[in-house]
Design a binder for these strands. Sequence first.
DNA 1: TTGTTGATTTCGCAA
DNA 2: TTGCGAAGTCAACAA
Lengths: 219, 219
Amino acid sequence: MRLVIARCSVDYAGRLSAHLPLATRLLIAKADGSVLVHSDGGSYKPLNWMSPPCRLTESEGQWVVTGKSGETLTVHIEEIIAEHSYDLGVDPGLIKDGVESHLQELLAAQVNVLGEGWRLVRREFPTPIGPVDLMCRDGAGVSVAVEIKRRGEIDGVEQLTRYLDLLNRDPLLAPVHGIFAAQEIKPQARVLAEDRGIRCVTLDYDAMRGTDTGDLRLF
Amino acid sequence: MRLVIARCSVDYAGRLSAHLPLATRLLIAKADGSVLVHSDGGSYKPLNWMSPPCRLTESEGQWVVTGKSGETLTVHIEEIIAEHSYDLGVDPGLIKDGVESHLQELLAAQVNVLGEGWRLVRREFPTPIGPVDLMCRDGAGVSVAVEIKRRGEIDGVEQLTRYLDLLNRDPLLAPVHGIFAAQEIKPQARVLAEDRGIRCVTLDYDAMRGTDTGDLRLF
DNA sequence: TTGTTGATTTCGCAA
DNA sequence: TTGCGAAGTCAACAA
C-alpha cells in the first residue's frame, strides 16, 4: 500500500463526470491497483476513487487509473508533500453479528411473540417471485406471511404486498394475512401497510436475543 | 490527519457487533474525530470505521472511538509500525455531472422523441404522494406520467404505479398513461411494467446530450 | 456470470 | 430536525 500526501486536482470520467479542484489530499494506492482520494473530513467515503479491477499508470506529475469498463480517474499531482509505502499482507476479514438474518432466526424461534398459539410453518417459504421470510399460522390456523426488515420502509411493504397478492390466489392457503416486522418502521411505510390491512410489529433485537426461546413454543 | 500503520485488532459495538482479528492495517484519524481502518484491498469501504460526530480517546495501546449514540470502535494496537501526521486543510469539494436530474432535464427538453406531437405539461408535477418526474400529453392529448430513473428496477415501477392509481382518480386528468424511462431497465422491472400497461423506454445519456433536436435513440 | 438484496449504507435535498 | 430518494452505491449470496 502506497500513501501519498499531495497537492493535486482530480478528474473522473465514467458513468458520470466529476472534478476536484487543486487542494492537498491523501492518495492511497492499494495492492490490487485501486486508488482512493481522501480529504480530512467527510465519512469513510473517499472524495473520489477507482474500484478494482483497474490499473494505475504513472507518469510525470500524473496518475491515470483505468477501470475494467473504460472509466478513468486522472490525478494531476502538483506537489508531493510526503510518500510512504508499506506491505500489509492479506487481511483475515471481518466477523459480523446482529444483521437481518439474525432477526429472522430470532423471530422464527419466538413466533409466539406475534400472538397466542401461533406456530411457524417454515422460514424462507418459497413463492414464484421470491421467498417469504416467515410463513406462520395464527391461533385460529389462518396463514400469515411475515416480512422482516431491519429498517421498515415502503419498499418492504410493496414486497410483502406482492407476496400476499400471489399467495391469496392459492385456495389451499387463502386467506393469507400479512405482518411487517422491523426494528424501526418509517411512518409512511406504517401508513401504507395499515391501509392495506398489514399489521406492523416493531422488533426489539436485544430483548429477543435475551429471551429464553423455549418457554412458549407449541409443537 | 493522522496515518498509522499498526498491527491491531478491532471491535465495533453499535447497531451490530463486528470483530477484526490481529493483522497489519492502516488507521486513519481525521480532523473531525472519525477513524477509518483500511486493509490493502477491497473497495473504498474501510474494514471498519466510526463516522462523525465522534470522539477519539487514546490510551496505552488502545484507541476508543465513541459515537454520538453510544457506538464504540475499539482498536487494540499491538505494534505501531509507522506514524505520520499532516495538515490538509478544508477540501473545496466535488463537482458532479451526469446524474438523474440531468436525465430529467434532457428528456424534458426532448419529449417529442417519446412520440409524434407530444408536449411537456410540466416537470416535477405535484401529487399528494410526491412529484411525478414529467407530465406530458401525447399526440392525441392524453395525459402521460413519465418516471425517470438512471437504473430501472421494480421499485421505480411501483412508484409510477402509485402515481398512476392516484392520478387516474382525477376526472380532469384521467385516463393517464405511464412511461418508465431509464438508462438501463432490469428484466423483472420491464415485465412488471408491461404487465401493468406501462411503456418502457431506454435512454441513451450520451446521445441525448449530443442531440439538439431530439433524435434520441430508443432500444 | 448474472441478478437480487442488505447495509454500521452515505449523501443531499426539501418540508 | 426529519424524512425520503439517489448512489460511480458496495458486497454477499443465490440461480
